[in-house]
Amino acid sequence: MQPYVLVLYYSRNGHVAEMADFLGRGVESVGGIEARLRTVPAISPVTEQTEPSVPESGAIYATLDDLKHCSGLLLGSPTRFGNMAAPLKYFLDTTTSIWLSGALENKPAGVFTSTGSLHGGQESTLLSMMTPLLHHGMVITGLPYSNSELSATTTGGTPYGSSHWAGTQGDKALSEDEKNLCYAQGKRLATLALALIH
């Protein structure tokens, strides 16, 4: 089986899904590894799945096997009060069997997010998404400042991972800096994944 980076995300309004696409392009720019884009269903306040079993469009829903067998992970979520969205957290809460097996140990992981306001908790969300990955024994990677967009961006982009400023109405498209940082993060993660395999 060809190695793959799992680009696992939840997207409410499409911004995180668009970021996932650019991250996937970055992954696939590296030969010998593919991007596997997967999402998670929305849940209700009583933590029941509220989406159909198969999404009508876009990425299909992730399974535990998608996560267990990946060579690297890119995890994305919109910000919810400085934290990841409940559907993604709910999925991660079901990964105890993978944690017990150690299947994710020593595999690289990175995180990405989108917020409505420029200072709406991008970095705290990225940090909160890293915590369960550290418990799984993953190797956390970010974006180094050799990516010049980190110093130039007036929208999203952090050393903790890619980010997007969607605007309070969700009407801001990904900036060129944001797209380039997503691509760079995907490429870096794929390169590290292949290095760790060999």
Rank of each mutant, 00 (worst) to 15 (best):
G76D: 13
V40L: 13
G26R: 01
Y4C: 11
L181E: 03
G121L: 08
H119Y: 13
P144V: 02
A152M: 09
L133S: 05
V27D: 01
D93H: 06
S77K: 04
T154Q: 13
E34H: 10
M138I: 12
S163Q: 03
P41D: 09
A152S: 10
T153W: 06
L118M: 15
G82D: 00
N83G: 06
T141W: 06
C182I: 08
G110L: 05
P78N: 06
A173Y: 03
A17I: 05
V30C: 06
S162N: 01
S101H: 13
S148W: 01
D65I: 04
W99I: 05
G32F: 02
T79N: 01
L174V: 02
P78L: 05
C70P: 07
Y61G: 09
L194W: 04
S148K: 14
L196W: 05
A59P: 07
G31N: 12
Y145W: 11
R12F: 03
G31M: 02
S148I: 08
Q122L: 10
R80Q: 10
A173T: 05
F91W: 11
Y145M: 00
P108I: 03
L67Y: 11
H164Q: 11
E28N: 12
E149R: 09
V111C: 11
I33V: 15
G31D: 13
S163M: 02
E48K: 14
T95R: 03
W165G: 00
C182G: 05
P108K: 12
V40A: 06
T191N: 07
Q185L: 12
S44D: 15
E34F: 03
K187I: 00
T154A: 04
S146V: 13
E56F: 04
H164S: 13
L6K: 09
S29A: 13
D93Q: 10
M138L: 08
G26D: 09
G76I: 11
T39I: 04
T191H: 07
